[in-house]
């Protein structure tokens, strides 16, 4: 469905299995929305899409009570957030107020509207897409809210061959219409539970902690990775290990996920790029000793 972006697809799927939410960032037209839709469709479950614009209100997302004149009561009309898959398209075009409403729902798994707390669907998975902040008319997400996404992925430009393939597939219509769901919602929940059973050995925990510390000691980094990011890194590595058919995490998983999980949360000084710095830290960080006893 998505041409040539297997890695990004896998990352997004890992985010789903790890029970987190995923942020896709790149230029418009690189396939972010297509990826989100394809993922949602192939899993089944309800899918809603929120197109974020500056005039979008929090109630447009969560829903609100409407007065029913027939029986003279207020009736709750659920917003698009009450779905298993939510695509928040161009989330950085929404106002901060709306963004926080969305992100709060993501963090808590529930929304409170007019004093009534309502549970969201299970699984609940948000894919937010974001244009680079340099574009006009955007409200960059604050670091604290970026921190709620388990991982962020960049689509990256397609190669020429990939671009040709995309054109060929679109010759006679949009192939997404033909997509069928391949996993059911209970399957996804089972996968999420299976992810929690993947072993992260003490050596892996040591490795993650030393990685966080190494990141913190880099002078280019103004805002270091939070504790939550360490938790997310472990969870994402578990999901990745599950994908690889393993029931334990390898340091390779942590290494591979360090950039997608950590890069978007780091505040950088100067012109340093978070992904470069992370890559450097990861490639220089010694593993904990193999011998445990």
């Amino acid at each position: 469905m998505i041409v040539g972006k297997d890695h990004v697809v896998r990352l997004a799927a890992a985010g789903l299995v790890a029970g987190g939410h995923v942020l896709l960032q790149d230029l418009p037209g690189t396939g972010k929305t297509m990826l989100a839709r394809a993922l949602a469709t192939s899993v089944g479950g309800t899918f809603r899409r929120i197109q974020c614009t500056p005039d979008l209100l929090p109630s447009d997302i969560t829903g609100s009570s409407v007065f029913n004149q027939k029986d003279l009561t207020f009736e709750f009309v659920a917003g698009p957030i009450f779905a298993n898959f939510v695509l928040a398209d161009e989330v950085n075009r929404a106002t901060p107020r709306t963004q926080s409403a969305l992100l709060e729902a993501m963090g808590e798994g529930q929304v409170t509207i007019e004093g009534v707390t309502r549970m969201l669907g299970r699984p609940f998975f948000v894919i937010a897409t974001q244009n680079p902040a340099e574009f006009h008319g955007t409200y960059p997400l604050p670091e604290s809210q970026l921190d709620r996404f388990i991982l962020a992925a960049e689509m990256g430009p397609p190669t020429n061959a990939e671009a040709m393939e995309v054109l060929a597939r679109r010759e006679h219509g949009d192939p997404i219409a033909e997509l069928r769901s391949v996993v059911s919602l209970p399957d996804v929940i089972e996968l999420q539970e299976g992810c929690l059973r993947v072993v992260a050995a003490p050596a892996i925990r040591t490795y993650i902690v030393s990685l966080m510390e190494a990141v913190r000691s880099r002078p280019e980094i103004a805002l270091p990775a939070s504790m939550r990011s360490g938790v997310y890194l472990q969870r994402a590595a578990q999901a990745w290990a599950l994908f690889q058919g393993r029931d334990f995490v390898l340091p390779d998983d942590v290494k591979l996920l360090a950039v997608p999980v950590l890069a978007h949360r780091l505040g950088m000084r100067g012109r340093a790029k978070a992904s470069d710095v992370l890559q450097e830290v990861v490639s220089a960080l010694p593993l904990p000793p193999l011998r445990q006893h």
Binding site: A201, D247, F248, V249, P251, R291
Partner: peptide, 9 residues
């Protein structure tokens, strides 16, 4: 084998 030992015990 080393991976299984070191990271799965």
């Amino acid at each position: 084998a080393v991976n299984e030992g070191a990271y799965a015990g």
